[in-house]
Simulated assay, not measured.
Amino acid sequence: MLDQSGPLNSLGFDKAPADTRVVVAMSGGVDSSVVAAELKSQGYDVVGVTLQLYDHGAALAKKGACCAGRDIHDARRVAEEMGFPHYVLDYENVFRDAVIDEFADSYLGGATPVPCIRCNERVKFKDLLETAKDLEADCMATGHYIQRKVGDHGAELHAAADAGRDQSYFLFSTTAEQLDYLRFPLGHLPSKDDTRALAAKYGLSVADKPDSQDICFVPNGDYASVIRKLRPEAAAPGNIVDHTGRVLGQHDGVVNYTIGQRRGLGIGGLADPLYVVKLDAENRQVIVGPKDMLATRSIPVREVNWLGDDRFDSRDAWHVAVKVRSTRPPTDAVIRPISATEATVELAAAEAGVSPGQACVFYDRDSSRIFGGGWIHKG
């Protein structure tokens, strides 16, 4: 299952598996459970850790969500089945401060945030990774579908073999230092069917558990209700206006709208279809316009995490491919660094619906390697 990248064991360490301690970040789903089971079967010193990220009795919690109460139970059960220790860590305060509050504030600011990236960046690959080191683990393994390969200059991040499962968009902010310590044992598998087959092989109770589709703290994908609960002012009414400022209708909170939205605007009777092109939370305005107003070729990015071999600002331009949304394929672009952490991305072809708060992830045009990425912000 695992890449044979080291002289003595599959995780690349020059010692026997029994002498290699691995902390496995266990969400309670089939992916991380298979990672833990496979490593245990190979003789590694496995320690499972699950994060409790929010109050499971609160309204924000939902059945079947990542790291909800049922998932903690499932992770613990897998650890019992496979015979390795398992710990649950209370990260509720950290998660609220680092992820949930920013999620709500970003929406109120007219952006479209991606909290799963912030969770990986600020919780799982930061605090949990430090916990793994405190436990004297040699590395931390996760069930993410992405590949870590060792190149001439050290560890590299690569897209998963199964393009349909690839999670590189959500892991672009993984730093080089973190990458040295992390392992992603599922990244080379051809399909999710192979993962479920391994779960069945080990007789895991989660073998047929469905994948979680929603953000863990957002019940049924209803962002608006969560944000209204966290920030009641998000439901403040205002005007729907066109790009000239002409009032076309009213809304019951900018939080109910997203960039690129066409349906449900409540401004029927117009000759041509209109789309949400901007959210002005400060003035409580939803700005709409024709579809061509959504198209852009120039994207300002900041908080750049660069995983290339040379310094990011050592060149005037980098010719790469980029993703501006997780569901879109990479498209040719030129990155023009402004500093070590800021740049302008120029797309070869205009993209519609590029929204502040989303990530812009950089890919090598000639291989599966990921060069990092940055956060799209208002120009």
Rank of each mutant, 00 (worst) to 15 (best):
D332T: 13
G164H: 11
F184C: 10
I72V: 15
A65P: 07
I240T: 04
Q167K: 11
V276C: 06
G353C: 13
F13W: 09
Q261Y: 02
T131M: 01
S191Q: 10
S314F: 00
S5G: 07
Q167W: 00
W318L: 04
I100R: 11
F84M: 05
D19Y: 03
G379M: 06
A271C: 00
V324K: 08
H56M: 03
E81R: 08
L157E: 01
G6R: 05
V288P: 01
V35F: 10
S225F: 08
M82E: 06
L204V: 05
S173K: 09
G154C: 04
P290S: 08
G221Y: 09
D309R: 14
G109E: 15
I370R: 13
A176I: 09
G151F: 05
V304C: 15
L179S: 15
S355A: 15
S10E: 11
D280F: 12
G28N: 06
N256Q: 11
K149P: 00
H144A: 06
D134Y: 04
R302F: 10
D364Q: 10
P190K: 15
V88M: 04
H188C: 08
V354C: 14
W306H: 02
H86K: 05
Y145S: 02
E130R: 13
E80P: 00
T296D: 01
Y54T: 07
G69H: 10
S5M: 03
G28Q: 11
L89N: 03
V30T: 04
C116L: 12
D97A: 12
A65K: 00
S41M: 01
A163T: 11
T175D: 15
D214L: 06
Y363P: 01
K40I: 00
C116M: 09
L135K: 06
C360D: 06
R183T: 10
A176V: 11
A111D: 06
C67N: 15
R262H: 12
Y44G: 10
N305H: 13
D14H: 03
V123T: 14
A61H: 12
S326D: 14
V322L: 10
A160Y: 07
D316W: 02
A16W: 11
I117D: 06
L8H: 07
F312T: 03
D134P: 00
R315C: 00
V22K: 11
D310R: 10
V322G: 05
H188W: 06
K201D: 10
V218D: 02
G379K: 12
R328S: 12
D222T: 08
V361D: 06
I72S: 13
L135S: 00
D19R: 15
D222E: 10
R231V: 14
R70T: 14
V206S: 12
C119R: 04
R336E: 15
F371I: 06
V78P: 01
G260F: 08
Y87D: 09
K378R: 14
